[in-house]
């Protein structure tokens, strides 16, 4: 597949990617497994799991995995630029007109309401992680300690991740040694 074609496919994917990055999996399935039959369903799911376990944005990660698979480094770069192309332009355009409309009462109301929805979505996304993990003593203590470090001691997120992931791995290693 030529790079330009790859770019255009990911431009399209970026443009129809509404409602969070997780929607990308069914879209990719449709583009690459069903329509073009170049990436198997199994590989796609594996890329998705990998994309989730790497840092960064899941949708961008999985796009780069597919780009790399099809065209190496330049493929990964092309897929990444393609998937952010339309969203980037949308944000620049919307941001420049938002200030004009922010004086409008209805727009203020909508922004207020969507702001509340954002809080709900943040809570739900925490709930998703909660549901999909083994909630044992290990999970709860790391969770509580991180929360205290963040809310009471106001540590920065990066510091919290470095401190507690190191602590977690050490605890796990000690646990394995004892067995």
């Amino acid at each position: 597949m030529p790079l330009l074609k790859l770019f255009l496919i990911f431009v399209k994917i970026g443009a129809i990617l509404l409602g969070g990055g997780y929607v990308i999996l069914p879209i990719l399935q449709n583009e690459f497994t069903e329509k073009r039959k170049i990436i198997s369903q199994n590989d796609l799911v594996e890329y998705f799991a990998l994309a989730q376990s790497l840092p960064g944005i899941v949708a961008a990660n999985i796009s780069m995995f597919i780009g790399y698979r099809l065209h190496g480094k330049s493929g990964a770069l092309t897929a990444m630029l393609g998937v952010i192309f339309v969203p980037f332009i949308c944000i620049i355009l919307l941001a420049s007109v938002l200030n004009i409309f922010l004086d409008n009462r209805i727009v203020q109301g909508i922004m207020w309401g969507v702001g509340i929805a954002v809080i709900a979505l943040i809570m739900l996304s925490a709930g998703e992680i909660w549901k999909n993990s083994k909630r044992n003593l290990f999970f709860s203590s790391i969770f509580l300690l991180s929360l205290i470090a963040l809310l009471i001691f106001k540590l920065s997120p990066v510091l919290v991740i470095i401190i507690f992931s190191t602590l977690g791995v050490i605890i796990k290693l000690l646990g394995r040694c004892r067995k």
Partner: peptide, 13 residues
């Protein structure tokens, strides 16, 4: 596995 409870705490906070 450790990153899960930490991300959870980050989001809640």
């Amino acid at each position: 596995e450790t990153l899960k409870p930490i991300s959870c705490a980050l989001l809640i906070s």
